[in-house]
Design a protein around this nucleic acid. Sequence first.
RNA 1: GGAGAGGUGGCAGAGUGGUAAUGCAGCAGCCUGCUAAGCUGUGACCGGGUUACUGGUCCCUGGGUUCGAGUCCCAGUCUCUCCGCCA
Length: 423
Amino acid sequence: MLTLTDIRTKRDELIEALAKRQFNAAPILDRIIELDEQRRQTQTQLDNLLSEANNIARSIGQLMKEGKHSEAEGMKVRTTAIKEESAGLKDMLNGIDDDLKAQLYLVPNAPYKLVPSGKSEHDNQTMDTFGEIPDLGTQALPHWELTQKYDLIDFELGTKITGAGFPVYKGKGARLQRALIQFFLDEANNSGYTEYLPPHMVNEDSAFGTGQLPDKEGQMYHDAADNLYLIPTAEVPLTNIYRDVLLKEDDFPIKMCGYTPCFRREAGSYGKDVRGLNRLHQFDKVEIVQIEHPDRSYETLEQMVLHVKGLLTKLELPYRTLRLCGGDMGFASAMTYDMEVYSTAQQRWLEVSSISNFETFQANRLKCRYKTKDGKSQLAHTLNGSALALPRIVAALLENHQTENGIRIPKALVPYTGFEYIN
RNA sequence: GGAGAGGUGGCAGAGUGGUAAUGCAGCAGCCUGCUAAGCUGUGACCGGGUUACUGGUCCCUGGGUUCGAGUCCCAGUCUCUCCGCCA
């Protein structure tokens, strides 16, 4: 959520930035400014009234002490009137406040200056491309055939046990999952990220803090009995570690990583995009999260991209980096890089990581602040990225490294799998 | 699930219904020829004022009683201890 201070002082700038998302901000921002103005006026009125009531109560106390009871009784008349009046103002203030919040929740984050304007994925900027796309000719099998051929993943068994989108990993397929998780966590640890193993369910406050609520309720599995949500990503529990926290300036940077399964209802998805491992209801992911000083958050974003590039290089996968255009970015992000690997058999790029700087958008909801040298509280910047999401990595590994002798495991991963080939 | 105790500032910790002690840490300033110590100021949030300054809110949450609630009443919630159940 944008801060009121920014909306008040940088209205025109924000409107211009939000236009890059094709978001017409002027009407709603002006409405917010108007409500904010009303709120402050009402509050001043209420404060004055309460101030008067406080003074009277003080005087009555004094008179009682001095034994002037009848005089004290006389003053109570005025306080009765004040009580009614202030109750009315309080209701009005709450009403305005609710309206104001409702409006604020509707405004997405303002794209950073480097973000290109655009409507859809077609307007994204390709920053770089690495690695060679192997020439597998017409022999190349898609991963959903490879997993069957080598008995690595049983999609139908998952459907029987749970439902579509819940695959069962088996044998070397299960082992490969575990190896990748371990590899990603080790790499993150080596880059200075502190490992966490957080809860896989979160409460309402946490889901709100990172922006899943109130909007994207339908994307999460919800346990109504206890009002808990299954996490759609480790970002939610990890970032919420710093909800309602007041940091010191030298606490930065805060670097966290964690492996969790991720649960997504993916309501409304269909077609060839959901084939095989492309889109699942449950999948595994290692996430990296940073909380940074506003002055350094964009430097940090680049470092996080470098970390992910390192992983993809070690996995010997062809990949490219995209800078997302305004229209393709998530609601809360100020700038996002997507990392995509090439799926040889499907002949398309698959998103395996999304790395974003949220600036103060999440921190404002989380109340994650730090104290400056001169004692002022400022909102911190939050960032996160996948490092990495497993299913599409597995798809790309299987497809790109398929040979006549089976599937070759990249060198960096062999110590983790314990085997060099799947055959 | 049952019984009891408790939730007060970044932390620790007081508080007969009269308007939140004190200590520690952090930060700012002063002082001592360095260091340590010492002295002064400093809670968070929302407002008003160009500044000095100033109003309000906040003692887990929500209601209630009262001129006035950290303190009394009701409901909820979380933590701790014990019991029960259990991997």
